[in-house]
Each structure stands twice: as structure tokens, then as C-alpha cells.
């Protein structure tokens, strides 16, 4: 019996032969590149694709592992987070306290200096200003209970601030020396010339200085012995000298106060 090769069998045979031929060609190509010492394009392509596949798998695996680890460590992370938040809040608070303490240093230094010069003084804090800024006065947190009395002098380490004009049980009002209603005896230190220092809203005007006085810009002016201050408390320095009028028996000068009234914080009341 003669076997008959069908069309299907021939196609299968050709396919096998084709595969063998392609394999041979690939092998030849590989051998050729191998002889030249270069990676073949096929190997390079396969390696590249494999690398990307490995990267993708590694990323997914890493992600899953990370997520699993994170989930497993969540309670620990939450505890760490809470601890760090508490620590941060504490440090922020400490930072604010330190900044506040740092800001208070000049005022505290001033008040310490004033206490050194006037041992019996009553330390006080400025708690209010004139609401309309019409007059130059401040409110302090010491009153009759602290033995503060009307006309007591008020100073800082820098010099004279003003005098008490109103006393309440727990607070008092201080008229600043730059207010127009303020008048205090003053002495130009280097020549011992007497004068009256009157407020001009921003500075002081020295009036009734003897015509013979040899005033200079920068001369130190201190308080004379008076109702509110003892002699020698610094008021400020002469910044301007007015030429005496013809026939006048006295002269005047402008004094720049030693105290910075814009930043009054702590003061000392010189209780009698």
C-alpha cells in the first residue's frame, strides 16, 4: 500500500525545515558576534527586556514588602510620631520662652541697674498707655497696696521716667517727664547750673539757666533735689542750645531724654 503525503504533512515538514534553518542562522549570527567579542543584538534585546521585567518585578515586590512592613510597624510608627510631635511641641514652647527671656534682657538689666542705684525702690511693670495718646502718661501695676504715693519718682536704669500723679489700690498713673505738664528741677552736671526741665511732648526744654552758663552740646543733665527725685538721677543730654535773647537774664536748651519712652517695660518707683 502506497502512502500518500498530504498537503498538511508537507506544510509541517516545511515548518520544521524552516525552524532548523532559522535556528542555524541564529546560531551562525551568535557565533559570528561571539567571535568578534561583541554581544549579539538578540542577546542584547533579550537581556534588556529581561532587565526591565526584573526591575518591574523587583519594584512590585519591594512595594508589597514595604507596605507589609509598614502595616506591621504601624503601631510603632504611630507611637514614634506621637513622641516626636510631643518633643517638637516642647521644643517650640522652650524656644518661645527663651526668645521672650531674651527680649526681656534689656528691660531686666535696666531694672536691675536701677535697683542697684535705688535699693528701696518698688519694681513695676507698665501695663497701659493713654488711650488717645493725648498726654504722655503710662499706667503701672503697683498702687497704694505697694506703698506707692502721689509724686513718687519713677526711673529705669537709663534715667528719670516721670512721677506718680494718680494712685489706685493696685495701679498708678505716671506722668512722663516729656509731657508738657511735667516740670522738674534739673542741673547741668559739669557746671552745676540749675534749671527747670519742662516737657515738650518729645523732649525736654531747660529753662531759666543762668546767662553766664557755658553750655555745650552733649552736656549731661541730672535731676536736682526735689519732691519726686533726689539729686543726680540722669535726665538726658543737651542736644540744642537756644541763643539768649537780647537783654534776657537767662537762656534755654533742649535736652534729649536718656530713657526711651517708646519701649518702656519695667520701671522702678522711688517710694518715699
Amino acid at each position: 500500500m502506497v502512502s500518500i503525503a498530504t498537503y498538511r504533512d508537507e506544510r509541517g515538514l516545511f515548518a520544521v525545515i524552516g525552524v532548523v534553518i532559522i535556528a542555524a542562522l541564529v546560531a551562525l549570527l551568535q557565533i559570528d558576534f561571539a567571535r568578534q567579542g561583541r554581544p549579539s543584538p538578540i542577546a542584547a534585546t533579550i537581556t534588556t527586556i529581561a532587565t526591565y521585567a526584573q526591575l518591574a518585578v523587583a519594584a512590585v515586590t519591594g512595594g508589597v514588602r514595604g507596605a507589609f512592613t509598614a502595616t506591621a510597624n504601624l503601631p510603632q510608627l504611630a507611637r514614634d510620631n506621637a513622641t516626636l510631635r510631643a518633643q517638637n511641641a516642647r521644643l517650640v514652647g522652650e524656644n518661645q520662652q527663651l526668645n521672650e527671656a531674651l527680649a526681656r534682657v534689656p528691660a531686666e538689666r535696666d531694672i536691675a541697674l536701677a535697683e542697684l542705684r535705688h535699693p528701696g525702690g518698688v519694681p513695676a511693670t507698665v501695663i497701659g498707655y493713654d488711650p488717645e495718646a493725648a498726654q504722655h502718661l503710662v499706667t503701672i501695676d503697683r498702687g497704694a497696696r505697694d506703698h506707692v504715693e502721689r509724686d513718687d519718682g519713677v526711673v529705669t536704669g537709663a534715667g528719670a521716667v516721670g512721677r506718680i500723679i494718680e494712685v489706685g489700690p493696685i495701679s498708678s498713673k505716671v506722668l512722663l517727664i516729656v509731657d508738657a505738664a511735667s516740670k522738674l528741677p534739673a542741673v547741668v552736671r559739669h557746671g552745676r547750673w540749675w534749671a527747670i526741665a519742662i516737657g515738650t511732648q518729645t523732649r525736654l526744654k531747660l529753662q531759666y539757666i543762668s546767662q553766664d552758663a557755658k553750655l555745650h552740646i552733649g552736656d549731661v543733665v541730672v535731676t536736682g533735689e526735689g519732691r519726686s527725685f533726689h539729686a543726680g538721677t540722669l535726665i538726658g543730654r543737651i542736644s540744642q542750645i537756644s541763643p539768649p535773647n537780647a537783654g534776657a537774664l537767662d537762656q534755654s536748651a533742649i535736652v534729649e531724654p536718656a530713657v526711651s519712652f517708646g519701649s518702656l517695660g519695667r520701671v522702678l518707683v522711688l517710694a518715699k
Binding site: Y129, P131, A133, Q201, G262
Partner: peptide, 22 residues
């Protein structure tokens, strides 16, 4: 308004004047 002015007037002085909330 008065309380605000008495506490903070010193910090908003402009040409010797403060806004009068009252």
C-alpha cells in the same frame, strides 16, 4: 475699644496720633 487703645495705642502712634476707636 478703650481697652484696646490703652494697651496698644503706643504701638500705632502715627505722627503723634492714634486712631480713636471710641
Amino acid at each position: 475699644a478703650v481697652f484696646t487703645q490703652t494697651m496698644f495705642a503706643q504701638f500705632v502712634v502715627f505722627h503723634g496720633a492714634v486712631p480713636s476707636l471710641i
